Simulated scan of single mutants.
Amino acid sequence: MASQLGIPMELIVEARRNPARLSVALISLGVVLSVVALGLIIFLSPAGIFLRLHGSTPAYLYYSVLGAVVVFGLAVASFGYWVVPRDVHGWHAAGKTVLWVSILPLVLVLALGGLAFLK
């Protein structure tokens, strides 16, 4: 599923072992996170549990979470572009940590409706 969104999963797995591939994996994952979250903000209105709750607070929560994912995706991509290539071996552990932490927002975006783009 994630490879259908444009995330090369073999690149992420390879980046765990090969420090030279880490910056490419971080940039790819950060861009995909930002684009899918922006796509959800623009093209998909809140649904599911957000419709059952009353008031406008659930909609604000939906858009706030997606906005935070956009900012986080841009931060991951910029970390992969600016920081990691300067000292690949020195930043390898931090880059791997950012890579694995960024899987949580990816799952969150897919759960909020990112799979709707696969239709």
Rank of each mutant, 00 (worst) to 15 (best):
V13G: 05
I42N: 02
G67L: 09
V107A: 09
W91G: 01
S3A: 11
G55F: 05
F79K: 01
L33S: 00
L104G: 03
V36Y: 09
P19N: 10
V71W: 05
G6Y: 11
K96Y: 06
L11N: 02
S64L: 15
M1C: 12
V65M: 14
P58V: 01
L40H: 06
S45R: 15
K119P: 03
A116M: 15
F72D: 10
P19Q: 11
L66V: 05
L115C: 15
V76E: 01
V36L: 11
V84C: 03
L66W: 03
A111V: 13
S23I: 05
V65Y: 08
F72C: 14
G48W: 09
G30H: 03
P8C: 11
G113M: 14
L44G: 06
L115M: 15
V107P: 00
W91T: 13
A77P: 00
A75M: 04
S78M: 13
G95H: 00
W82N: 15
A116E: 06
F79N: 00
A68L: 14
F43S: 12
L108Q: 03
D87Y: 07
I27Q: 08
V98K: 05
R52D: 07
S45G: 12
W91R: 11
P46F: 07
V31P: 01
G48D: 08
G30W: 07
P8E: 14
L22H: 01
V13T: 10
L74I: 09
H54E: 14
R21Q: 01
A37C: 12
H92D: 01
V83N: 01
G80D: 02
H54C: 09
Y63E: 04
W91F: 10
N18G: 03
V36S: 08
P8G: 13
L110H: 02
L26S: 00
V31W: 03
S64K: 13
I12P: 04
A47P: 06
V84D: 06
V107W: 04
V88K: 09
L51A: 07
G30K: 06
F72H: 15
H92G: 00
L61N: 07
H89W: 15
G80Y: 02
Y60N: 12
